[in-house]
């Protein structure tokens, strides 16, 4: 493998709650290379979101080590290493689409002219050209989520962290966005970490799928996808696709065996 962009080594995270300690992450070791598209899949509480939040320095591991671009997560944040896309678009209702995308640029202190140029470029990248002056409520849910991806891309981070970005959208919109996301990934060569509940989504998008299971949150299987990088939507009916999906499902089931 190439030098890892993200490297987790025996990562542990224990939350102290009123009901006692909760092992959100236990002994998670993973290396992610530049330009990979890695999906994290598993039931609620398996730590997939927590892992992403650790990478983004929104949570701090209680054990093990984690580096992002060779730095601590906090330093990586300062170096604008990643853009984060949440489940909800989280656009500010009082800002236009362009204004929302400009927000991180304003905060990071980009010059005015460059801000405009970058906003125009990422709007084009997510196919929202001409919608810059609209307000969020004038756009559909799928378009809002695309705008939030544009916002994460605006400051040229080379890592894209996505936490169930399409989870709240209907399946047809989701398919369309998945296709667009792959195209975007192919064009930009970003390293993508993608949290999802959906097996087809994970298999369709990823070069690697990380299957996780809860209590304690841990990795149960890591599957390298043999699918080619160029993936039309109907690749989901091929034998190779179904075989990976099957293996993911088996991995999830094995993780669940502890439960009942």
């Amino acid at each position: 493998m190439k030098t890892p962009v993200i490297k987790a080594d025996h990562l542990d995270l224990v939350f102290q709650t009123n009901d006692g300690p909760v092992h959100a992450l236990s002994d998670v070791s993973l290396g992610i290379g530049k330009g990979e598209f890695v999906s994290f899949i598993g039931p609620s509480g398996c730590g997939k979101t927590t892992f992403l939040r650790c990478v983004a320095a929104l949570e701090h591991p209680t054990g093990g080590s984690l580096t992002v671009n060779g730095m601590t997560p906090d330093a990586a944040r300062q170096a604008r290493s990643y853009g984060y896309v949440f489940q909800a678009a989280g656009l500010y209702p009082w800002r236009t689409i362009a204004g929302n995308i400009r927000l991180p640029l304003e905060i990071m202190g980009f010059p005015k002219a460059e801000q405009e140029e970058r906003v125009a470029r990422v709007l084009d990248l997510v196919d929202l050209k001409g919608f810059g002056r609209k307000y969020p409520w004038q756009l559909s849910g799928g378009m809002q989520q695309r705008a939030s991806i544009a916002r994460a891309l605006a400051f040229d981070a080379d890592i894209l962290l996505m936490d169930e970005p399409f989870g709240a959208l209907d399946e047809i919109v989701r398919d369309h966005l998945n296709e667009q996301l792959l195209a975007l990934w192919a064009r930009t060569g970003k390293t993508c970490l993608f949290v999802t509940h959906s097996i087809p989504e994970a298999v369709y998008l990823s070069t690697r799928i990380v299957v996780m299971s809860p209590r304690p949150g841990r990795i149960t299987d890591v599957i390298d996808s043999p699918l080619p990088r160029d993936r039309p939507l109907d690749i989901r009916d091929t034998a190779a696709f179904l075989e990976i999906a099957h293996r993911v499902r088996e991995g999830l089931r094995a993780g669940h065996a502890y439960d009942d």
Binding site: L58, R77, F86, Y92, L103, P104, I107
Partner: peptide, 21 residues
């Protein structure tokens, strides 16, 4: 929480969080 987390990922200062959010 999500909007505050977003501000965090951009390393926004408390003043920026106040005035922009």
């Amino acid at each position: 929480r999500m909007q505050l987390d977003l501000m965090n990922t951009w390393s926004a200062s408390p003043a920026q969080v106040f005035w922009k959010l």
